[in-house]
Design a protein around this nucleic acid. Structure first.
Lengths: 347, 347
DNA sequence: CTTAGTTGGGAAAAGGTTTTCTCACATCGA
DNA sequence: TCGATGTGAGAAAACCTTTTCCCAACTAAG
């Protein structure tokens, strides 16, 4: 049987620093110093070693470096967000902030399973991650793992288990203000708020901001409609708001894009034009939803990637030994204006 | 200034094998063997060392182990799927398959940027990942990185750069068959197919299967409608199919759930009932979309998690030195029946 | 010519674990 | 009592890199 009958691939051995040193006729110590711009030697020697390393395709073994430096250039991202609606943009930001520092990210989805969470955390700890970023779908619920007594820095994004932790969250109240104030600027007077269930902390935070902006602008207060984060609740809300007697809203600020979508569809089915008769603004700026509504949805973007970047950078500096003051940092949202909210009339 | 004025946390030093050995009054060699069930010693000694390790909370340093074993218990997942629509379920499957083996997964989103791809791949290589799984949004496009001459095993999921590679993809033709055959069983005779652009390989593969099933069942052939993967194309398609003259379809098999959503909305706007007048089946089984359509959408599920599990397991066995025959492995889809496709009439 | 200082480069330890050898001691049969 | 066998446990090498000394050779000053 010929040897090439075997489909098993042969992987060549990685070239080590010793190989480079031998090839260049110096000791490993010198080779190391040459490549790290340390120590003293003739530029000639240094250059020769560099060339040799280059030629041999030498890449230092991170494992050995990590062992020595007690730093693995690795962080873990813990999430329970199965579909990655929030965690992926966050991840993108983190990754973006860290890749230039040579740091890679372990992603662990722990669902709601404490056993799984424990397993993943231990695996990461054993691999000596430099730090952990924990994220969740909502600020007022925590991952099913205890990260409080780890020997490494932990940063929270979108959740904050205790006030002594360092946490980054979006400024939901500010985001709500952006939306409602935008409606005010557009001259809408009766502004409704349709949002998720009262069990979510953000629901109250945003509703509070909504009421505040109405008050500041001398507009009629309307009680926020709490329900579920679904399209179908958007439909129900429209039925509730428009099918009864009394004055109808001119604008609806929705708690997420799915609700907004349901609202827009419900309005259209009633022959109401968006934004002509009613303006709609959503929350989350979930592109795939926001761009599919008719008309495309104006929505509050939580800047998750930026949040991830901040979290990543902060973790890095924490790992580097710089202290960080504990507490929540709120990062501003931004309003992404499309066509569902109406436009300022010129003149 | 009191020392507790400083917010810098103090992280205790990890306990090493040497600590355990010293504490138990043995050598590190013995300690190692005790904990790994190797070597010879009295059960008494072994037990005592175990207890000591337990008491001290010893966890072996993975870095040191990896260095020695030339195996990092780490794999990389490379993707360009920003929103994680495909890569996250895949990731979940991979992670699920590997976590019990103590393997963690680096997730790297390289977008379409070759520089970024290169950066990530090098970072992973330096960290001595045991293998890499590369995935993409579509089988006929590849990531902007060259993985062909790595010293570690590579597995592809959803893409296959060359026939010598090991790749896992979903059986799109089979999935299409499932959908169309389901319509046939339900007695629908005029079955249309609305799908994405011709630049996608899967579009042709599924269209082929669609035609084949029609032929096998002696049903009238209809030319598939190719467009974009969007809701708005779904609307257009409905206009095209129903607003002209000629016989109308009784069923529509859509290339993805977004198209299906557009189709369903378009049908409703025309006063056609789903599934009463027209049955609709989508593709991807994107839960958040499929459950929000009215009625909920029957859809072909590509079993991405299962695919990820297979890929992970295969990579593991490849890493373990077992050869794997190159080529594409197609994994079956499954039909998730909800309410949009109609039901078999009893009696 | 001696001494102090500089320069280029190497030896060795460290990081934490695993594994192979080796060794001392005990036991057993002759 | 002597060799053979077996048993429990330790010493040391290995994995790969970094860093701290250290040393030899050379230069310059006195």
């Amino acid at each position: 049987m010929a040897s090439n009958d075997q489909p098993v691939p042969v992987f060549s051995k990685p070239v080590t620093l010793r190989d480079v040193a031998t090839e260049a006729g110096v000791s490993v110590a010198t080779a190391s110093k040459a490549l790290n711009d340390q120590g003293r030697m003739t530029t000639e020697t240094r250059e020769r070693i560099r060339q040799t390393a280059q030629r041999l395709g030498f890449r230092p073994n991170s494992l050995a470096q990590s062992l020595l430096r007690r730093r693995s250039f690795t962080v873990g991202l813990l999430t329970n967000d199965t579909y990655g609606r929030f965690s992926l943009p966050l991840m993108a930001g983190i990754s973006d902030a860290l890749v230039d520092a040579g740091v890679s990210v372990f992603l662990c989805n722990v669902e709601e399973d404490p056993r799984l969470g424990q397993l993943h955390v231990e695996a990461m700890l054993d691999k000596r991650v430099d730090g952990i970023i924990a994220t969740g779908k909502r600020i007022d619920r925590h991952l099913p793992v205890d990260l409080s007594n780890l020997r490494i820095p932990v940063i929270y994004a979108f959740t904050q288990p205790d006030p002594d932790a360092v946490a980054f969250v979006s400024d939901d109240a500010g985001g709500a203000r952006l939306a409602v104030e935008h409606f005010c600027r557009l001259g809408r007077r009766r502004i409704a708020h349709v949002t998720g269930p009262s069990t979510f902390a953000v629901v109250h935070e945003r509703a509070e901001a909504y009421r505040a902006v109405l008050a500041e602008n001398g507009l009629p207060a309307m009680e926020p409609l709490l329900g579920s984060w679904t399209e179908s609740f958007g439909h129900q809300a429209v039925a509730h708001l428009f099918d009864g007697a009394g004055e109808k809203p001119e604008a609806i600020f929705c708690g997420n894009d799915q609700i907004a979508r349901g609202v827009i569809d419900g309005l259209r089915e009633r022959g109401l034009s968006v934004p002509g008769d009613v303006g709609v603004i959503g929350f989350d700026n979930w592109q795939i939803v926001a761009e599919a509504t008719r008309p495309p949805l104006t929505s509050v973007d939580m800047n998750l990637a930026a949040l991830g970047r901040e979290a990543g950078l902060t973790l890095l500096s924490l790992v580097g030994g710089k202290p960080a003051v504990p507490g929540i940092r709120k990062l501003p949202c931004r309003l992404v204006v499309r066509q569902s909210c109406g436009r300022l009339q010129d003149g």
